[in-house]
């Protein structure tokens, strides 16, 4: 599929920024996003190409403005809803519930 993810040869995306002694994850939510994506993959409802495709469905401007694990999260949510494992409504309800007073 042609899309914003197909970055090979594109101009103007800025310098390559490297980090010395980079940690595997940069935040606790990245660990959790990685793990739930992998574990949900074990359910066998989709394969690796479907996972990648789901991330490529992210709106282009949003794709370029968000981080790697945000792409994963977006794709996972899309697949879980598409496969009927969770509904959009219950996800939004849980987010709203957690937003009330949830602090880390």
């Amino acid at each position: 599929m042609n899309g914003v993810h197909d970055l090979g040869g594109m101009h103007g995306l800025g310098p390559i920024v490297r980090e010395e002694n980079e940690p595997v994850f940069h935040a606790e939510w990245e660990r959790r996003a990685f793990a739930i994506t992998m574990a949900a993959g074990f359910l066998g409802e989709w394969n690796i190409d479907m996972s990648r495709h789901s991330r490529e469905l992210m709106p282009p401007a949003e794709y370029l403005a968000t981080s790697y694990y945000e792409h994963w999260l977006w794709g996972l949510e899309h697949l879980l809803v598409e496969k009927g494992l969770l509904t959009k409504e219950e996800i939004e309800a849980r987010v709203a519930e957690l937003r009330k007073g949830a602090v880390r």
């Binding site: 959790r32 574990a39 999260l73 949510e77 879980l80 969770l86 849980r94 987010v95 957690l98 602090v103």
Partner: peptide, 26 residues
């Protein structure tokens, strides 16, 4: 696993909320 010690509490970001929502539901 969440970091509590010493760091001032702050509201969860939208991304953190969504990760937590998915993990708890799953």
């Amino acid at each position: 696993r969440h970091e509590h010690g010493g760091t001032p509490q702050r509201p969860l970001t939208e991304t953190e909320l969504r990760v937590r929502a998915l993990e708890s539901l799953l």
